[in-house]
């Protein structure tokens, strides 16, 4: 009985010129880093968020480095600075094949025990930082780096060979399960491509469960969706 008639009136519309002024200058897309087409299905509609953590779990030699540098390729090509810590002997030709713009990537190949401070410095400088963990990372170190990355809106890509090496859950978890090379045959041929099954999951619904078969890399040296 106290229902107001005001509810029934149409809401006043804002002047389009005023709307254009109050709209934020930085579009929502600037909170997202670009992703190469082959990985888009893994990252889902939210894409590669700034300030998030991506963990790649793969046995040594089964494509973890390739997948990690593929994540870096589109941002580096778009002009974002990338840092790579702990990848001791990176293959330049392979990175070029993946489309990584090497002029935008800063490598700290062998920081030794100083790796957390190397990551910390690069979080201050770059937009996306890749860390290859050789041995288990302690809880406080991991928490500090994740907090600093979130604070600076820097995406952290962590490459581990077992999930236990990185103690924190991450926003996007990628794992390589079934990797097979084809092309070599009893002395004939050469490695042509590797088919790998990559599964994506994540916390807080950041990524829905998704499995993709990828050429990691394809015969052209880049990463593509298989079939």
């Amino acid at each position: 009985m106290f229902a107001s008639v005001r509810h029934l009136q149409p809401r006043p519309t804002l002047d389009p010129k005023l709307l254009a002024q109050v709209r934020p200058i930085a579009a929502a897309s600037s909170r997202v880093l670009p992703v190469v087409p082959a990985l888009q299905s893994l990252f889902g509609p939210r894409g590669l968020q700034r300030g998030s953590t991506v963990r790649i779990t793969a046995q040594r030699g089964s494509g973890g480095s390739t997948l990690a540098l593929t994540v870096l390729s589109a941002p580096s090509a778009a002009g974002h600075w990338c840092g790579v810590v702990g990848m001791a002997d990176p293959g330049v030709a392979a990175m070029v094949g993946l489309g990584v713009d090497l002029r935008r990537v800063v490598f700290v190949p062998a920081p030794g025990a100083a790796w957390p401070s190397a990551v910390g410095e690069l979080i201050d400088g770059a937009d996306i930082v890749l860390v290859r963990c050789e041995r288990p990372v302690t809880h406080p170190v991991a928490r500090n780096l994740v907090a600093k990355a979130r604070d600076r809106q820097v995406t952290l890509v962590i490459v581990t060979s077992t999930p236990e090496q990185w103690p924190l859950p991450s926003d996007v978890e990628l794992s390589i399960s079934d990797a097979r090379w084809s092309g070599a045959d009893g002395g004939y041929g050469h490695f042509v491509h590797r088919r790998a099954v990559v599964s994506a999951s994540g916390r807080r619904g950041a990524v829905r469960e998704h499995v993709a078969a990828l050429w990691l890399p394809s015969s052209d040296g880049d990463v593509a969706v298989a079939e």
């Binding site: 990175m95 090497l102 800063v106 062998a110 410095e121």
Partner: peptide, 25 residues
């Protein structure tokens, strides 16, 4: 990024920080 790389070089040595040269795409 230059400032960060310089700080790292001061800490770990000049050749500890590497960057690709003469190359894009």
């Amino acid at each position: 990024v230059t400032a960060a790389a310089r700080r790292l070089q001061a800490q770990l040595g000049a050749s500890s920080v590497m960057v690709g040269y003469g190359h894009g795409g």
